[in-house]
């Protein structure tokens, strides 16, 4: 737990909080990007280069852009007059607390269950590739199938319906 970690953690949490609390939707999306960047830096701080760069490439390069596009293509980006909290914020808080505690419990348990490793294993991209196509090939294929069906679905949605065009 180095000072760098605390700085990055504060950065990430600040980004996340801003994403929730800001009024302007585009500002929220940009703040979310800050949180993504903080997360990527946390990964890099843990010497997980591949995951860190993949985080930047996918979340900042694609997901953030997608979010922003969705905001711009659906409705105006004008700041709402009234508060941004919905009436069911209490239920949301409870659900979030439940999810957080479940995840926290899992993380803490995993630290106790696994043998504590002092030396950081050096994982190269090569190892990650071998693991993905070796031991984890089935999950990978399932994800690939899911993404392919999503792509086909997107193409079908985007296609002109016969007759309705013009």
């Amino acid at each position: 737990m180095s000072p760098v970690f605390y700085i990055l953690a504060a950065f990430t949490v600040a980004g996340g909080l801003a994403a929730v609390l800001l009024k302007n939707t585009v500002h929220c999306a940009l703040a979310l990007t800050v949180a993504f960047a903080g997360l990527a830096l946390l990964f890099l701080n843990l010497d997980a280069q591949f995951v860190g760069f993949a985080q930047i490439l996918i979340y900042i390069g694609a997901v953030a852009i997608l979010v922003v596009f969705a905001i711009l293509l659906t409705r105006g980006t004008e700041t709402p007059r009234e508060g941004v909290f919905s009436r069911s914020w209490l239920a949301g808080l409870v659900i979030a607390a439940c999810v957080f505690s479940a995840l926290g419990w899992a993380v803490l348990e995993s630290a106790r269950a696994l043998p504590h490793e002092t030396a950081v294993p050096s994982v190269t991209v090569h190892d990650i590739g071998a693991a993905l196509l070796g031991r984890y090939v089935l999950p990978l294929e399932i994800v690939a199938l899911l993404l392919t069906s999503a792509t086909i679905g997107a193409v079908i949605v985007a296609m002109h319906e016969k007759g309705s065009a013009h």
Binding site: L30, Q49, F50, I56, I60
Partner: peptide, 22 residues
């Protein structure tokens, strides 16, 4: 000299898009 240098490069060039949008 990064082990995932190419990925780093592409992640950085992907991050420029958001600036253009901003």
């Amino acid at each position: 000299s990064l082990d995932a240098g190419l990925l780093f490069f592409f992640s950085m060039s992907a991050a420029t898009e958001l600036s253009v949008f901003m």
